[in-house]
Amino acid sequence: MNPIEVSHVAKSFATTQAVADVSFEVHRGEIFGLLGPNGAGKTTTIRLILDIFKPEKGTVSILDGPMTEAKKDRIGYMPEDRGLYQDIALDRCLIYLGTLKGLSKIEVLNRLEEYLERFDLADHRKKKVEELSKGMQQKAQIINTVLHHPELIIIDEPFTALDPINTQLVKDLMQELRNQGTTIIMSTHQMHQVEELCDRIVLIDEGRDVLYGNLEAIRRQYSGNAVLVRAAGELPSIAGTEIVRQHNGTFKLKLAEGTSPQEVLSGLIAQEVLLEKFEIAIPSVSEIFIRVVEEGDK
């Protein structure tokens, strides 16, 4: 059974339908992207998964069944906003939250030492959390999420406030955990991070899942309406295409409806263009995101 199975869940607050109909599964040992525009229902979906809210419709299975108290110790959760005591020392805060995850104080101290060193927070352990920069607090939250070595991690916007070095640090950690078999659900707006890290995604818009599956398959699915062409000489105009971008001599040609990449290639060969590169353009996650959401709005 998959670590998470969400089936047609719905949840509303007063007159607002936060989640209308969302279904997806998360496989063991993968990084799963939970995507969507602001207000799409991502956070509510996460809270439904974690049993913070009860769904009005549908079912959620987490770690092979409904949520229990014992399962809480096997899950690491990092909400998007602050989730640390601001007015106590960093190490005291993390020790307390770690012990609430079922670790002994000794275990927490041993693991904490390692993580504080890794995230360059060892010298700040005695500072109050509120005295730390936003980036440091973000790293502290990540430590709190992974300290008890959970088998399932749900992490909302992990890269907020992080500089490129620390972003890489967190990405390395996530990939390391995936390689160890940890399942990770990541909600983020940083699409390039999704491209780099996620194996599969679900895109939620207006409370419904509008795109779901393997990331590469989705990108291939949304490819075909553009090609990348680089020619030795000047690129002639090709019927049914429009140049949308040129970068380092490579042209991105957008295909009109009904025009296939094969027709474009045939047209180029027919005009005896000396081709150096011809490939079907794979859209970025960001492009797919915008296209799907805009289509949904229409």
Binding site: I52, R82, Y85, Q86, L100
Partner: peptide, 16 residues
């Protein structure tokens, strides 16, 4: 205070 600084959400995932 724990609700406001979102610690409550973490606590709800740690303890009954």
């Amino acid at each position: 205070g724990e609700k406001e600084n979102m610690v409550m959400e973490i606590l709800m995932q740690s303890i009954h």
